[in-house]
Design a protein around this nucleic acid. Structure first.
Lengths: 310, 310
DNA sequence: CTGTTAGCGCTTTCAA
DNA sequence: TTGAAAGCGCTAACAG
């Protein structure tokens, strides 16, 4: 009798067992490869334990985010994975308390549950260390969205990394995490007198850095000879850029996988107090950064302890 | 009583109603922005009608594909959306017959259910028409995976588009749909005597075209002056390439949305016999294609009706 | 060891 | 109009 066409009904099973073997994942944008990689990481570990993932796209809209969170909780998912929407710190109060949640990539103000994030400060430190080793002293920063923890941490990480070396930022600006924003910020910089330009720029993500590259091409600024540029994320396109972009790699898939593992531990009850796991970045050196030009090398503008020039 | 903390249980509801308000979507790779866009399209229309999407990543592995398909059907999804895995034509026989399915982007041999695909032949025709209008007569093709319908259709579309104009392919090669493959195919071409090179190349997708661009840069072949290059897909990166890539745009999100609408119509019973919807491509002209160089313009090598040269 | 039954939380039908 | 009961397909507890 089983032979001809019987299929177990997992929804009945879920009702009985009070367990759906499903997790909900809500992210800002599936079409963004970074979030896509996060999902891959999640999917791989979920599949390994026979769990499926329900997915919701928020487009960074906090109301869609809430909607999905309550929808998923009504569907009795066993756990929730969420990449918090940009301005959506309000989520903290709206979380269904009955189900384990872990935050990925960004953690909102006042978050008290599990989280898996990248060490943004350390990543920026790697970028700055690399540039300093190449002889750069006048280093600027092309910043991202300051309403997100990632944007804030990278910016303050930059200031700290310089301060640690007795240097001062040669340039700081900010805008959305987008190509156009990078382009516009670079244009703004290029309009300053050339003598005040940094010799190297750290961008808060690769999109911004790519925007800088495009603006530089239009303004006939040679990268890396006139200006070294370092990105953050190491998206697939970074390697294809002209010149190939030096970037701080975020192990997106690993973040997803860790978050999923943490979530399942919590679901099974074998996870202590809420923890936030931080995964490390890696600096990928390519051709967009190079030694500072000899003429710039000794420039005293912002060098530590060299007050004779300012 | 309802006031304090009651959440309806949708799994019980689903059991009773025999309807989960869930669709399953299985794709090769979420981290690929093209599939990500498909998902966005699906998600947008699904959300509009209160439906959620369960997601499965197959990595182009037919066995994972089957696994997900049966898993989803046991979970009693109301419908299935599938981007068939590369070598996975076997899927046709393995499909759960009880649930509506629509194929996206690729349709396997012997598929008899609904499908939404792009008009690959027409897309290639647009590329060829564009190049011919620029004066090109010696046009080559950098091909993709011939085990996929997309790869096959683009290649045969290319041959037909040339034949329609009395031209013959000046070059045809093939390989996987990847950057490295495009690079390798271009290297191979560049090793031929320069007199035999095409003046323009159509690539079966943007990754291949980007690989050609990289190989050309290394071989000091000027794009587009020595060689025009046209891609297919118009991925986000096409616009950022150096030079920006002329490409045939696939409206990925629209494909996803159409597929979802078709699926819901079928679920509701308001859809006639199985149909395959084909959505049109758009040519996006950028800087990687240009008029044929004067010296090449009159070249007789493969011009129609000009037998004096061959 | 096999077979029966209660109950998961909902909707729908039928009775009061 | 309101209330009780049956049943969706499963698992677990219990009885034979």
């Amino acid at each position: 009798m089983v032979e001809l066409g019987y299929r177990p009904n997992k929804v009945a099973r879920a009702l009985t067992l009070q367990r759906t073997n499903t997790v909900g994942m809500v992210i800002p944008d599936v079409a963004n490869p970074f979030f896509g990689e996060l999902m891959r990481g999640v999917e791989e570990v979920a599949r390994g334990i026979g769990c499926c993932v329900l997915f919701g796209n928020t487009d960074n809209n906090p109301v869609e985010e809430r909607r999905y969170l309550t929808e998923f909780s009504e569907r009795r998912v066993d756990g929730l994975l969420v990449v918090v929407a940009a301005g959506g710190d309000g989520i903290v109060s709206a979380l269904p308390s009955s189900v384990p949640v872990v935050a990925l990539d960004r953690v909102p103000e006042g978050w008290s549950a599990d989280a898996v994030v990248v060490d943004n400060r350390h990543g920026i430190e790697q970028a700055v260390a690399h540039l300093v080793k190449l002889g750069h002293r006048r280093i600027g920063f092309i910043g991202g969205d300051q309403t997100q923890s990632t944007g804030r941490e990278r910016r303050s990480g930059f200031e700290e990394a310089l301060a640690r070396r007795g240097l001062e930022p040669a340039w700081i600006s900010e805008g959305p995490f987008s190509l156009d924003s990078g382009h516009a910020q670079a244009d703004h910089l290029f309009r300053q007198p050339r003598s005040r330009w940094p010799t190297a720029l750290v961008a808060a993500n690769d999109l911004l850095a790519l925007g800088v590259l495009a603006a530089a091409r239009e303004a006939s600024v040679a990268i890396p000879d006139d200006l070294s540029v370092c990105g953050f994320d190491d998206i697939a396109y970074a390697a294809l850029a002209v010149p190939p972009l030096t970037s701080v790699r975020q192990p997106a898939r690993e973040i997803g996988a860790q978050a999923a593992r943490l979530l399942f531990d919590r679901i099974e009850g074998r996870a202590g107090p809420p923890q936030t796991r931080v995964v490390r970045t890696t600096l990928i050196v390519r051709a967009s950064t190079t030694k500072v030009a000899p003429t710039d090398a000794g420039s005293p503008a912002t060098a530590a302890g060299d007050s004779s020039a300012s």
